[in-house]
C-alpha cells in the first residue's frame, strides 16, 4: 500500500492542499478530482505534517458533496473561500495562502471542471513569489526550510530536486493513488466558510465556451511482418525526430528558440 510510504522529518510542517470539484469523465457526476485527491494523499503521508484543505468556489449542495470526498480521506475540516461563479479565484487563494502561511502548497496539475487550464499554480506562484515544482512524485525529506523531492518525468524517470520552502508543488497521476474516501468521516467533516471578495474574471466573461470537439486520430500504421516489430513500434518512444537540446544559453537565447519553434509549428502567427 502506498499509505505506508511515510516521509520522515516533516514534523511541524504546515501543508495546504488546494482542492477542486472533480468531474467523472463518463457520467460527468461531480466527485473529488483525481489529481487533487492524490495531492491530499501525499500531504497525509507526510508524517507529522499538519494538513489543511482549501477550496475556492461556490457554496452549492453538489459541490459540497464532491468536497466531502476529500474529507472522507480522514480530514476534519476544509476551508471554503466563497467566490462567485464568474470570479477569478487566484487573488482570493493568494490572499488566503499569504495569511495561512503554509510552507508547502500541494495541488493537482489541472482541474477537471471550469477552465482547467492548469495555469492556476503558476499564477499563484507568481503572485506569492514562491518557487513551483510540477509533477511531484514524492517528498523525501524536509529540513531547515529546504525540501528534497522527487519529480516525475516521462516514462517513469525521476529527478531529485531540492527546493526552498515555501513552495507550490503540483501532483499528476504519477503520484501514488489516493486512499479510499470513507462515507462516515466524509459525512461528519466540517466546512469552515471564509469570506473573500470575488474579483470577476473579465477576460473569462468575454470568452465563448463550447464543448470540445473530438478530433479524428491519425491511425499509426505499422508495416511489419513480425509481432516483435509491431510490439517494438507500439512500445517505442514517441520521437519527434527534429528535437534540439539547448544548454548553457542565456534566457534570451532560450526564449528566442522557443519563439521560433512556436512560429514554425503555427502556434503563433
Amino acid at each position: 500500500m502506498p499509505h505506508n510510504a511515510k516521509s520522515t522529518a516533516s514534523v511541524g510542517l504546515n501543508v495546504a492542499v488546494l482542492v477542486s470539484i472533480g468531474r467523472h469523465p463518463l457520467t460527468a457526476r461531480t466527485r473529488r478530482a483525481d489529481q487533487d485527491a492524490r495531492a491530499v494523499e501525499m500531504a497525509l503521508t507526510l508524517e507529522g505534517a499538519s494538513v489543511s484543505l482549501l477550496h475556492a468556489g461556490q457554496q452549492e449542495h453538489e459541490h459540497e458533496e464532491a468536497i466531502r470526498g476529500y474529507l472522507g480521506m480522514g480530514i476534519d475540516t476544509v476551508s471554503l473561500i466563497q467566490q462567485q461563479s464568474q470570479a477569478d479565484v487566484v487573488p482570493a487563494l493568494a490572499n488566503a495562502l499569504r495569511t495561512g502561511a503554509p510552507q508547502l502548497v500541494l495541488t493537482g496539475t489541472r482541474a477537471e471542471t471550469g477552465e482547467a487550464s492548469g495555469v492556476l499554480p503558476y499564477l499563484l506562484a507568481e503572485a506569492l513569489g514562491w518557487p513551483i515544482i510540477t509533477g511531484l512524485a514524492a517528498v523525501e525529506k524536509v529540513e531547515q526550510g529546504m525540501a528534497t523531492v522527487l519529480q516525475a518525468l516521462p516514462r517513469g524517470k525521476r529527478r531529485r530536486l531540492r527546493i526552498r520552502l515555501p513552495a507550490i508543488a503540483t501532483v499528476d497521476s504519477s503520484a501514488p493513488a489516493a486512499r479510499q474516501s470513507a462515507f462516515g468521516p466524509a459525512k461528519r467533516g466540517a466546512f469552515e466558510h471564509l469570506d473573500a471578495t470575488s474579483e470577476i474574471d473579465e477576460a473569462l466573461a468575454a470568452w465563448q465556451v463550447q464543448p470540445a470537439r473530438k478530433r479524428p486520430k491519425r491511425l499509426k500504421i505499422v508495416k511489419s511482418s513480425s509481432a516483435r516489430d509491431r510490439f517494438k513500434a507500439a512500445a517505442a518512444k514517441a520521437d519527434g525526430g527534429s528535437g534540439q537540446t539547448l544548454s548553457d544559453v542565456t534566457p534570451e537565447q532560450g526564449a528566442e528558440a522557443i519563439f521560433k519553434l512556436l512560429k514554425e509549428e503555427g502556434v503563433l502567427r
Partner: peptide, 20 residues
C-alpha cells in the same frame, strides 16, 4: 468500509465505480 475506508484490493475501485 464506511469509517476506515479500508476495503481491500479492488474494493475501493469497484465502490468508486458504483458511485460514479
Amino acid at each position: 468500509t464506511l469509517e476506515h475506508g479500508n476495503t481491500p484490493n479492488k474494493g475501493a475501485e469497484v465502490l468508486d465505480n458504483l458511485i460514479a
